[in-house]
Design a protein around this nucleic acid. Structure first.
Length: 868
RNA sequence: GCGCCCGUGGUGAAAUGGCAGACACGCUGGAUUUAGGUUCCAGUGCCGCGAGGUGUGAGGGUUCGAGUCCCUCCGGGCGCACCA
């Protein structure tokens, strides 16, 4: 190691940061230690997709937060696991390959190298020996292995399902790559088309994925989104026998409102319902042409069109088809309409227009009868419960289930909605025409992509129609080289072009073809946190003893955009591995925090026309700009997502060059609470940069003395240690930094008076600050005469006795208004406080001539006089 | 429409039911330097010369006391969106 760079007070951040980054790397300072008896802290960042654009200022936000925490925990004596890796499969590298012919692996490696370099330039304390890369065959070997376990457990299957087919790109897109019915890349139309796909039975875990959310220390919003996504509802399946031409068939419906069965006036089936196809085939539908036309129209609608058209209900009556209401034997007309989804429940509903808004809207369009069976508790209908159906005249459906009372509903009349549901289910079960049923919105996970740059499925389809897994000992099944990466145009994945790879023959001469789909990007990220625990193991994805030691992840920090998909998929895989006895916990991530997005500043004219940063003219520090062909005028500043078009993207490299990594880290933490959205302001970086300069000056320019701390110094120091430590425990980085700024303000004032500062005073402060600004921390520690890194130096303990003061100033209120301040002894009794307060002239003025009704004196807090 | 979150100075923000605006940016004035994104001092919610008044989106409530707790409304963000 070279000596301290400080010979003068200049804050040479570039040299300091380079020096310590090299030191940490060469000495493997942050190699995970597994000290016996020490508590573990597994702190995980969501690993990035290494895009060609490099790091943006959003990445370092969460990474800095976890880094500070990890450095703090190491100093507190914890065994810390803090790894980083790359989620490197994905579409952009493949698109680039299509355009240029460059192998995605080449692009990926280049991007990873750049990301690694940028991340290292921020001084994060990752254990680089544990770096993982989802595209590394040594890694995806185990992704494939886990898939095989899912397959063997019966959780993976092939099905013909509708997918997002983009004719222009000649490929299938994932849902997340389709925005409002068009491709995210290129903005081409996307249509639904059935194709053979791999599915994972996540639905089998729906209940556990839902109920275990209660055990997690996660943001309430994320848990709520997962609950909505899983979408549990409790209701009933009810059988409607068919009458007329289709007699003998049964239409099964799912309903959460079986209490309203007496109010059903028609039925609706989805256009794709198998019974409709059957009836068309057998010719029992009189208006078959009309029905077919509607089916065709519904099928050709894109998702966008479906949502746009959902205001006006459409549908077609199935002429000749009747369903019999099991509770009253009434024959109901049956419609098809695309407002009933084929994929939810049974794909058919009973319609109760009086008590369901969608049914109400449909009934209005088709002039169908509307019968009231639930009435407000205090209404006339509820009081004079008529046994006969009551036509419903209100302008909207009545859907209040909390207070509604059943009317005109036979044996349910007079009951609450809740009681009526229970009674109806009992009745349905007794008669054998229905039963209670819990339903989930969650669908099975569409797990295949028609892509090159993903994990190949280790599956072979044999000519005899059977299918088998690639034996475990033959994993990984690596990707073949391709001459070009263009889509085939038919929907057939690019891997189909690798003929030699695709065609296989077994020992007995049986021929087969490999699966040519690849896994989605989520696969690799479903379990990477497990691999970090034992990243070089070639016998297992990780050693069970180590898994037991490190799981669960204690803190997981990442963007809110992964609230549902990644986090739900990873929980699902984890639970499967748990059931197989391969991981020791039922949940992977104990505590989750979403960092808030960092926005850029954007500018618009008074009429709202956006003006890019490079078109702005600054006059006296005020922004001016012009609309197309317009006059220059003052602009309005507002925070907006950083974007290329606004030219307001902040590049971390620039910030590091101008102010240093420590300043960037400190600023990102000082902007505000980690979890909230914050606009980037470069002036703020200057603020914290100046703070670091002052710290540097304080330590290197003040005369350092061996004398004991004064009482004031001890109080200042210990208050800072306490506040910083307390704030770190609750991730309040911004207030911890402000506490350190207060320290420096006070220390500078102190130094000015005394001419020197005790060594201990400065040393302990440097230790406090080091997790936030680690490069300067190390440098100043060395300056203070220490030979080694401070990374494992014990976190300073604060001395509570140093915080004790003899006298405090408390506010005095009269009728709740502040009227004065008095100094009292810290242990003053309420009576003493009252006396002191009354003696204060500012207060006495407001008590004069008044009667004191009550005195509230809270020790160490305040005094309040209630007067008349 | 439904669910979740959030409204505090010119700006980013602090504040276990107890002195609103800590800390920082910006700004104003001054000092030292003036190559300066330097450093230092003072001031800075609003109204008022002042005593004082007033102030946390609006209105109501609980309380000796409310930014904080409860109710209604308004505004913003995010998510889901025909899920029967």
């Amino acid at each position: 190691m070279t000596g301290a760079i400080h010979t003068m007070s200049d804050y040479n951040f570039s040299a300091i940061e380079k020096k310590w980054q090299t030191f940490w790397l060469e000495n493997k300072t942050f190699k995970t230690v597994e000290k016996e008896g020490a508590e573990k802290f597994y702190c995980l960042d969501m690993f990035p997709y290494p895009s060609g654009a490099g790091l943006h200022v959003g990445h370092p936000e969460g990474y800095t937060a976890t880094d500070i925490l990890c450095r703090y925990k190491r100093m507190k004596g914890f065994n810390v696991l803090h790894p980083m890796g790359w989620d490197a499969f994905g579409l952009p590298a493949e698109q680039y390959a299509v355009e240029t012919g460059t192998h995605p692996a080449v692009t990926t490696e280049k991007n990873v190298n750049r990301f690694r370099e940028q991340i290292r330039a921020l001084g994060f304390s990752y254990d680089w020996d544990r770096e993982v890369n989802t595209t590394d065959p040594k890694y995806y070997k185990w992704t494939q292995w886990i898939f095989e376990q899912l397959y063997k457990k019966g959780l993976a299957y092939v099905a013909e399902v509708p997918v997002n087919w983009c004719p222009a790109l000649g490929t299938v897109l994932a849902n997340e790559e389709v925005i409002d019915g068009r491709s995210e890349r290129g903005n081409h139309p996307v249509i639904r088309r059935p194709m053979r796909q791999w599915m994972l039975k996540i639905t089998e875990y729906a209940e556990r994925l839902l109920s275990d959310l209660d055990t997690l220390d996660w943001p309430e919003g994320v848990k709520e989104m997962q609950r909505n996504w899983i979408g549990k509802s409790t209701g009933a399946l009810v059988d409607f026998q068919c009458a007329g031409a289709c007699a003998g068939d049964t239409i099964k419906v799912y309903t959460t409102r079986c209490d309203t069965l007496f109010g059903a006036t028609y039925m609706v089936m989805s256009p794709e319902h198998p019974l409709v196809a059957k009836w068309l085939e057998s010719g029992v539908i009189a208006n078959a042409d009309e029905v077919k036309a509607y089916q065709k129209k519904a099928a050709s609608k894109s998702d966008l069109e479906r949502t746009e058209l959902n205001k006006e209900k459409t549908g077609v009556l199935l002429d000749g088809i009747k369903g019999v209401n099991p509770v009253n034997g009434e024959e109901l007309p049956v419609f098809i309409s695309d407002y009933v989804l084929a994929t939810y429940g049974t794909g058919a509903i009973m319609a109760v227009p009086a008590h369901d808004e969608r049914d109400f809207d449909f009934a209005k369009v088709f002039a169908l009868p509307i019968v009231q069976v639930v009435a407000p508790a205090d209404s006339d209908e509820a009081k004079n419960a008529s046994p006969d159906p009551v036509p419903y005249t209100a302008g909207a459906a009545f859907t209040d289930i909390a207070t509604g009372v059943m009317v005109s509903s036979g044996f349910l009349t007079g009951l609450s909605v809740d009681d009526a549901r229970k009674k109806m289910i009992a009745w349905l079960e007794e008669k054998g025409v229905g039963k209670a049923k819990t339903q989930y919105k969650l669908r099975d996970w569409l797990f295949s992509r028609q892509r090159y740059w993903g994990e190949p499925f280790p599956v072979i389809h044999w000519e005899d129609g059977t299918q088998s897994l690639v034996p475990e000992e033959d994993l990984p099944l690596t990707l073949p080289e391709l001459a070009d990466y263009k889509p085939t145009g038919t929907g057939e994945p690019p891997l189909a072009k690798a003929v030699d790879w695709v065609n296989v023959t077994d020992a007995n001469g049986r021929k087969g073809v490999r699966e040519t789909n690849t896994m989605p990007q989520w696969a690799g990220s479903c379990w990477y946190y497990l691999r970090y625990i034992d990243p070089h193991n070639d016998k297992a994805f990780a050693d069970p003893a180590l898994l037991k030691k490190w799981l669960p992840v204690d803190l997981y920090v990442g963007g809110a955009e992964h609230a549902v998909l990644h986090l739900l998929y990873a929980r699902f895989w984890h639970k499967v591995l748990f059931d197989l006895g391969l991981v020791p916990t039922s949940e992977p991530f104990q505590k989750l925090v979403n960092q808030g997005m960092i926005l850029g500043m954007a500018y618009k004219t008074p009429r709202g026309v956006l003006v890019p940063m490079d078109k702005i003219e600054w006059r006296d520090g005020k922004p001016f700009g012009a609309e197309e062909g317009g006059e220059m005028e003052p602009l309005v500043e507002f925070p907006a997502k950083m974007s290329k078009s606004l030219k307001n993207v902040v590049n971390p490299d620039d910030v590091i060059r101008d102010y240093g990594a420590d300043s960037l880290r400190l600023y990102e933490m000082f902007m505000g609470p980690l979890q909230v959205v914050k606009p980037w302001q470069t002036n703020g970086v200057r603020g914290v940069h100046n703070f670091l300069k002052r710290v540097n000056r304080l330590v290197t320019e003040t005369k350092i003395s061996e004398r004991a701390m004064t009482k004031d110094e001890a109080r200042t120091l210990n208050a800072t240690i306490k506040k910083v430590g307390d704030d770190l425990e609750v991730l309040a980085f911004n207030t911890a930094i402000s506490a350190m700024m207060v320290f420096v303000n006070e220390a500078e004032a102190e130094a000015k008076v005394s001419g020197d500062l005790p060594k201990e005073f400065l040393e302990k402060f440097v230790l406090c600050m080091a997790p936030f600004a680690p490069h300067l921390g190390e440098e100043l520690w060395q300056f203070l005469g220490h030979g080694d890194s401070l990374a494992y130096e014990p976190w300073p303990l604060y001395d509570p006795s140093a915080l004790v003061v003899d006298e405090i100033e408390i506010p005095v209120q009269v009728l709740g208004k502040l009227r004065g301040r008095v100094k009292v002894g810290v242990s003053a009794t309420p009576a003493e406080m009252e006396a002191a307060a009354k003696a204060n002239p500012d207060v006495a003025k407001f008590l004069e001539g008044k009667t004191i009704v009550k005195v509230i004196a809270v020790p160490k807090r305040m005094v309040n006089f209630v007067v008349k």
